[in-house]
Simulated scan of single mutants.
Amino acid sequence: MSATLDPSSAAPAVKIIDFSLFLSEDSDTKRSTANGILESFKTIGFVCLTNHGLPQSRVDEMFGWSKSFFALPMEKKILAPHPPAGTHHRGYSAPGREIVVQGKYDEETVKSLRETNQDYKESFESGREDDPVMPNIWPPENVLPGFRQACLDFYWTCYELEKNILRALAVGLGLDEEYFIPFHGKADSQLRLLHYPPTRVPEGAHNLSRLAAHTDFDTITILFQDDVGGIEVEDPNHPGSFIPVAPVPGAVVVNAGDFLAQWSNDIIKSTMHRVRAPPGASVDGVVPARYSIPYFCACDLNLVVDAIPGTWSDENPKKYEPTSVMDYVMKRFAAAY
């Protein structure tokens, strides 16, 4: 007799949703698409959006700039150094500089993690040009002419996509479509260029970790990635078990961050995820380089937010006190450096 599979134990898949259906003029189509996005956020915290409205030519161009920057000699890249403190999250970070810290903030624990849990990647981070809290740190223009403007142009293109995704989230929650927009009016977000250099797989190893398991701590993250792949999402039904998310050409992967989970009174999931070398990716024992571009969307830092309307009731009371965005974000930033 064959065993019956408990449906609740099956790993939920990351939904692939055609976002052009939300951008349509038909209200029923918009609502059903928004509901699908929200449902994916509630079950696994991730969704994959195709036809999202950002031209692929713009994405390809930004990947080209990223590859050009990381191909520079180290002495050129460090002309835009990330400051020692994580609270100023801008500029270039060399491999091993940043650590992934999951809810660990005390000094001794962070020090221990820094010594044992470094991820072999390099990054460059930027934001809006008029940010008084975290001003941008650029390499001299003659190091890579056009790089600065390319980053800024792509940042503001991502901001338009961010707002449309937030509109879909609002519709899914039964709120006014513009509900989340005033909370993100200053574009206090971050564009990160990431490069995982080619790496030799240790002898006898079956896989290679490229980024340790973690959650993001923003509202949402929009991820552009190349075709190398490797991102894996924790199965919410089986903690410690991870589900590969294969790259979908032309799509973006969107996930909810810790802040959105808390803001939604935990009806939305912020899910652990990691990056590993996909099976079969290595050639002669070497895993190829991987490039990705996450755009971290955060609330305006000057705000204090309370639970989203409709996410709490007498039967399901608020779990969190009103939260200062500045305090929350800076605490998380500081632990990474």
Rank of each mutant, 00 (worst) to 15 (best):
A3N: 10
D6E: 10
K15E: 11
D18W: 00
F19T: 00
S20V: 00
F22L: 00
S24C: 14
S27A: 15
D28R: 10
T29Q: 14
K30W: 06
S32M: 12
T33L: 00
T33F: 00
A34K: 02
A34L: 02
I44K: 09
I44A: 08
L49N: 01
G53K: 03
P55M: 07
S57H: 07
R58F: 08
V59D: 04
E61R: 11
E61S: 15
F69K: 05
L72A: 13
M74P: 01
K76P: 06
I78N: 09
P81L: 07
R90F: 12
G91V: 10
E98P: 01
E107P: 02
E108T: 12
V110G: 07
S112D: 04
R114Q: 07
R114V: 04
E122C: 09
E122W: 03
F124K: 06
E125A: 08
E125S: 10
D130A: 06
D130W: 00
D131P: 02
D131M: 03
P135W: 10
P135G: 06
N136G: 11
P139A: 12
L144Q: 02
A150I: 05
Y155I: 02
C158N: 15
Y159L: 01
E160P: 05
E160D: 13
N164R: 15
R167I: 00
A170H: 03
L175V: 12
I181M: 11
F183L: 15
F183E: 10
K186V: 13
T199K: 06
V201H: 00
H206F: 03
H206M: 02
S209I: 12
R210P: 04
H214Q: 09
T215N: 07
F217G: 05
T219A: 07
T221S: 06
T221P: 01
L223D: 12
L223E: 15
D227T: 10
V233I: 14
H238Y: 04
H238G: 00
S241L: 07
F242G: 01
I243G: 04
P244E: 06
P244V: 03
A246Y: 01
P247Y: 00
P247S: 09
V248I: 15
V248G: 04
G250L: 07
N255P: 12
D258A: 14
D258M: 14
L260D: 09
N265A: 03
N265S: 01
N265L: 04
I268N: 08
K269T: 13
K269Q: 12
K269Y: 00
M272V: 11
R274V: 10
G280A: 11
A281W: 12
D284E: 15
V287G: 05
A289Q: 11
R290K: 13
S292V: 01
I293F: 11
F296T: 08
D306W: 15
I308G: 09
P309T: 10
G310S: 13
D314S: 13
N316I: 15
N316S: 13
Y320S: 05
V325W: 05
V325Y: 05
D327P: 01
Y328L: 02
R332F: 09
